[in-house]
């Protein structure tokens, strides 16, 4: 049962008999079996666990080398390269770059998870309501989506954040969620729309199940997989967007510690101190890559046809 591609092809050629042994109920187990054997999944999941650990206990990880305090700085060390006790070298203020990069994981990952989970909830609720109920709710949600689809992601963030002089992890996560909910909502809406007329949903309604019950018990579980995939991919996108906004100067601000700020400072010293650019860039890229790989692996597992 681990050969969905072959089965798929056999089906296309008019061979449904081979499919008899593969029932829909096995989909989730199949997805897990498929995932477990995928190197992309194992690598990205491990990477994400490590990053989550770093974000949760930066002090612990930072103290692996040297003093591990990002705010203990000595201008005399300004811009020095990697050396014993300071594997990533020093930044412009002479602070330990390794400790700074490690501490930078928390805001990035917090914003990524916060914004994504917010827009996940909004997408699930609005998407199901719009798709399942149709009518006025659908019209209202759809028009609202159209408006927010009218903003390119980064530009929307720039405009709104410019008007917020005091920016924290929360404001930035909120603004990013504001521009990312429509994609998930559209996906959820179309799933709910398709499921509204599925036989088992009609059966549940005929048996007298209330609308909220049908939506929660029948529509949501069957529509959630694509949204889950999209959200996993989105975490990577949000983290990259946050770094870009912070780099531009409309995200987190000093004295916060963040990869975007580190890149912003380092940009001016590309020739002299390339290491100042390299390490935050590496961590940022690895984090984004990890979530995108995980999303890719999930998508392949849930929907083998897409590959």
């Amino acid at each position: 049962m681990t050969e969905p591609v072959a089965v798929d092809q056999a089906m296309a050629a008019g061979q449904p008999a081979v499919l008899a042994e593969i029932s829909e109920g096995n989909l989730r187990r199949d997805a897990w079996l498929l995932l477990r054997g995928k190197p992309e999944f194992l690598i990205s999941a491990t990477l994400i666990l490590v990053l989550l650990f770093i974000a949760a206990f930066p002090g612990l990880v930072a103290s692996l080398f040297g003093h591990g305090d990002p705010r203990v700085c000595d201008l005399a060390s300004s811009g020095l390269g990697p050396r014993a006790g300071h594997p990533f070298g020093f930044d412009l203020q002479g602070c330990d770059l390794y400790a700074n990069v490690i501490y930078g994981a928390r805001p990035s990952i917090s914003i990524g998870l916060l914004a994504t989970s917010t827009s996940f909830v909004v997408s699930a609720v609005l998407g199901i309501l719009a798709g399942y109920h149709g009518g006025f709710v659908d019209a209202a949600v759809s028009r609202l989506m159209d408006v927010f689809f009218g903003f390119p992601f980064i530009l929307g963030g720039i405009i709104i954040l410019t008007a917020f002089p005091h920016r924290t992890v929360w404001t930035i996560a909120f603004v990013l969620a504001l521009f990312s909910w429509p994609t998930g909502t559209r996906l959820m809406r179309s799933s709910a729309l398709a499921l509204r007329d599925a036989d088992y949903v009609l059966a549940a309604r005929a048996l007298g199940a209330s609308s909220p019950r049908v939506m929660i018990r029948h529509v949501f579980p069957n529509a959630v997989a694509p949204l889950l995939v999209l959200s996993t991919l989105a975490v990577g996108g949000i983290i990259a967007a946050e770094a870009s906004l912070t780099f531009l100067g409309v995200g987190l601000r000093l004295p916060a510690i963040s990869w975007g700020l580190q890149l912003s400072v380092a940009q001016g010293y590309l020739r002299q101190y390339p290491h100042m650019l390299f390490f935050p860039a590496l961590f940022l890229s690895l984090t984004v890559l990890a979530f995108i790989l995980l999303g890719d692996a999930l998508r392949d597992a849930f929907d083998p046809k897409l590959r």
Binding site: G236, A240, A243, S244, F247, L263, Q267, L270, R271, P274, L277, A281, L284, S285, V288, L289, I292, L293, D296
Partner: peptide, 29 residues
């Protein structure tokens, strides 16, 4: 494409600027 999608444009820009501009000098920085 996986690599390009995963590396933020920001980082890609620095990388290109550093390698092709600063190190190899093929393009203006």
């Amino acid at each position: 494409t996986t690599v390009v999608i995963s590396v933020p444009a920001l980082v890609l820009a620095f990388l290109a600027q550093f390698v092709l501009g600063v190190k190899l000098g093929i393009f203006p920085i």
